[in-house]
């Protein structure tokens, strides 16, 4: 598959954006600038990027608790994301969702989700909506290895395959369900094997190779658009940080993280770009500087924003009912 230089540069930019946003978020969290649960995606950037590059702007995604990468790759704005991490009024969710619940319906982002496996059925429903309306959109559903043990995985894939719905199921196999390694949480190595049960294509790709992800997704998206139903794509990858910030990661064997750091998807793509004259080192440096500035702009925006007025706590529960607040 021939991938244009323009696409390669776009993918590089997305991956670096995710990495830099999250590294900055990590430090801000450590400084105590904001609280809550923060689940970082560092190390897995090639998956979100390769998948979203294969989608159109009017396609949909469902995300997970580890969602920053998906949101950025689908076109989320760093300013509103950072403001949401801070719980500010200008955040994507006006401070009501935080890191785990960022959504942007205008970009087809149907939300990050705090319940492991919840996206399987929601993505299937979005695809049902697409099929019902007769458009050629698709919905990509991100989920982790451990969520494939939830009943929702079976229910979602069963319904989507039975009704030939335009979903691309993207399993980010990062080797762990929180602290429990894949070998300890399921009796298989390749999750793509589970596609057999639904009579749909299942493929395992190197999740740290953005080209491999992009190609697999492009093929799956093409099938979905033609009404040929869902595909299960397993992307093998690794999360560098703990399950959440503050996780001591006592469960990792010694040397495992270091081995995976050698497979960092970002330098890997840089190397390719230099070798194939996609970008010069100078251009790469300039792009990195531009993204640094974007991230700083997002932090400034978040810090300068106000916290939501407490009266807004009772708003947005319903479209038309606002319950009484407190008298204080």
């Amino acid at each position: 598959m021939k991938i244009s230089n323009e696409t390669i540069i776009e993918m590089y930019e997305k991956m670096v954006k995710i990495r830099k946003f999250e590294n900055r978020a990590l430090n801000l969290f450590a400084e105590g600038q904001f609280g809550g649960f923060v689940h970082l995606y560092i190390g897995e950037e090639a998956v979100a990027t390769g998948v979203c590059e294969g989608l159109r702007e009017d396609d949909f995604i469902t995300s997970t608790h580890r969602g920053h990468g998906h949101i950025i790759a689908k076109g989320g704005d760093l300013k509103y994301m950072m403001a949401e991490l801070y719980g500010k009024d200008t955040g994507y969710c006006k401070g009501k969702g935080g890191s785990m619940h960022i959504a942007d319906a205008t970009k087809g982002i149907l939300g990050a989700n705090g319940i492991v496996g919840a996206g399987h059925n929601i993505a299937t429903g979005a695809a049902l909506g697409i099929q019902y309306k007769g458009t050629d959109q698709v919905c990509a559903c991100f989920f982790g290895d451990a969520s494939t043990n939830q009943s929702t995985f079976h229910e979602g894939l069963n319904l989507a395959s039975t009704w030939k719905l335009p979903v691309v199921f993207v399993c980010e196999n990062n080797g762990y369900g929180i602290s429990v390694s894949q070998a300890r949480h399921q009796n298989i190595t390749d999750i793509s094997q589970r596609a057999v049960s639904y009579n749909i294509p299942g493929i395992t790709v190197d999740g740290n190779d953005v080209f491999a992800v992009y190609e697999a997704v492009s093929e799956a998206v093409a099938r979905a658009r033609k009404g040929q139903g869902p595909t299960l794509i397993e992307c093998k990858t690794y999360r560098w940080r703990g399950h959440f910030e503050g996780d001591p990661t006592v469960y990792r064997p010694e040397g495992e993280l270091e081995q995976w750091k050698k497979k960092d998807p970002i330098p890997r793509l840089e190397k390719y770009m230099l070798e194939n004259q996609v970008m010069t080192q100078d251009e790469i440096d300039k792009l990195n500087a531009k993204i640094d500035a974007l991230v700083e702009e997002a932090v400034d925006f978040a810090q300068a924003s106000k916290f939501p007025d407490v009266s807004s706590a009772v708003e947005d529960v319903y479209t038309d009912i606002v319950e009484e607040g407190r008298s204080r």
Partner: peptide, 15 residues
Amino acid sequence: GAIIGAAVGAAAVGL
């Protein structure tokens, strides 16, 4: 789970 979940997804995209 799929029935309710699919309703959520379908409603989210405008049905």
